[in-house]
Design a protein around this nucleic acid. Structure first.
Lengths: 281, 281
DNA sequence: CGGGGTCGATACCGCAGCGGTATCGCCCCA
DNA sequence: TGGGGCGATACCGCTGCGGTATCGACCCCG
């Protein structure tokens, strides 16, 4: 199977519409139809059921979509890392990615400590939307990532645990519930007039709901001060300016584990050095 | 990058000789030369240095070889698993792979217990040479594997620990050292006239040395009985017939962890069921 | 119940690019 | 200094990719 065929298939499988997929691929619809039919013939499997309003995935198609995305990421990673090997000749650099606005204090400590190492290399930090870190590791845009379990899926990567912490509720100072010594997640999620904010999905869109759309942590903390929303976050959020905010411990929230993750079988000495530094924090 | 280019590159990188690689690929040498040159141009990186006696890998080439193998495995896995999805329609089956001759007792218990589950599917067991299990998982020939740390590299897979055990030395009954209550790995490796057997490398060849070439556990145990070799193995080897054998605990050997491993992000309910059964053993 | 709109599939065509053969240029060694 | 082994280059034929035009199936709607 060629990556071209796989890219075509993934486009159609994501659009569920041959014409739109062709448009997205910058080609005409008929060659795409033919390529898909040829792929199905070669695999000996129907990948789509053709409907009058588009196409639908078969079981085999679902499998190929899931596995094919991984394969395409792997090919892209191979290409990207090869390019970087030559670009970086003599001046190696490391790309670290993390969720924007998370673990800021930890990251600062890590980068400081690593920079002090004798064999440290330049580290480029890429802050990206929640959920994108794993994809960046998989397709080679990043060499190391800071992830947070159970929110991020770390399967398929090598990891070291950096920190385990409880979650807390963040309320406007002076709110009646502030008097509570602790509360449950269910209570924090259903405070009258304080809907939890909505997090973006992987594609950047927001689910329906009453809460504000969360983009930037400082802005949302401001919303909390204004009494417009409440938050459930790892306790390290206290490192942010806390005037006007009240923190209430949660009794039943999942513990958040901050990990440093890197691609399996990684042989980069730079990655190893950064991970070693992180483990010593 | 197309998988065809990647296959060409890997062939040349493994042979370090364009002509031989072309032969292996079933094509003439000139198109292969050109394809490699074109790949280098597109990547903007020299992958090989041409020498009068063949070619050598550059740093970029090393990177692409390492990453490219993974990518090719991923593509092959996608293809193979898609084919299996349709073949197995209605009668799903699971392929489990393990080192030949290892963990026999555990495997028997696992397969029995799983077969008794209400939603069990057919399990095909593929016994393959040591070190091949991970590759079979990566390229889709198997869905689940039994691996042994620290011998096998489990990075890149999801795993559950099944068993942790000590290693022991196996000597011919009546050997003077049998009287010892325990010994070290160094001692077991240097017994006069009892060289440890040689294990095959990943490509099936054997390293140089005095010990016998190890192929089959029962045969090697027979060699121990005959006073021709000694062994260092996990203690579960005691499940084999032990007449004529003496077991001496080792004080400093690494603990062996038996794990069940499966590809990351696996959604197969059959795999999940087998793993759940294994965890309950 | 028929016409227009929206799909994917088919027919056909031109050309890029792949793989083939022949040959070159280079280096090492007898 | 010539011969052998290596990869690179030159050139050629044909496969197969992507393009346009068109078809056939289906659905909605008046």
């Amino acid at each position: 199977m060629e990556t071209r065929e796989l890219r075509y298939f993934v486009a159609v499988a994501e659009e569920l519409h041959v014409g739109r997929a062709a448009q997205r691929l910058g080609m005409a619809q008929p060659p795409l139809s033919r390529a898909i039919a040829q792929l199905e013939r070669r695999l000996g499997a129907d990948l789509f059921v053709r409907t009058p309003r588009g196409v639908t995935l078969t079981d085999a198609g679902e499998t190929l979509l899931r596995e094919g995305r991984v394969a395409l990421d792997a090919v892209e990673a191979a290409e990207r890392r090869t390019r970087r090997t030559v670009e970086a000749a003599g001046r190696p650099a490391l790309v670290l990615t993390a969720k924007a606005g998370a673990s800021g204090e930890l990251m600062a400590k890590l980068l400081d400590a690593y920079a002090a190492e004798p064999d440290a290399v330049d580290v480029e930090v890429v802050l990206s939307p929640p959920g994108h870190q794993a994809a960046m590791l998989r397709d080679g845009r990043a060499d190391v990532a800071i992830l947070h379990r159970p929110f991020d899926d770390t399967s398929g990567f090598d990891v070291d645990v950096l920190m385990v912490e409880e979650q807390v509720a963040i309320l406007p100072a002076g709110h009646p519930l502030t008097a509570r010594a602790s509360m449950t997640v269910a209570e924090a999620s259903s405070i009258p007039d304080l809907p939890l904010p909505r997090w973006p999905d992987l594609d950047g869109s927001y689910p329906e709901g009453p809460g504000p759309e969360l983009r930037d942590l400082t802005q949302v903390l401001q919303l909390v001060r204004l009494g417009r929303t409440a938050l459930v976050l790892p306790e390290s959020v206290r490192a942010n300016p806390s005037d006007g905010l009240a923190v209430v411990p949660l009794t039943d929230a999942a513990r958040v584990t901050t990990v440093i993750a890197w691609p399996p079988h990684c042989t980069s000495t730079a990655v190893a050095g950064l991970v070693r530094t992180a483990a010593r924090l």
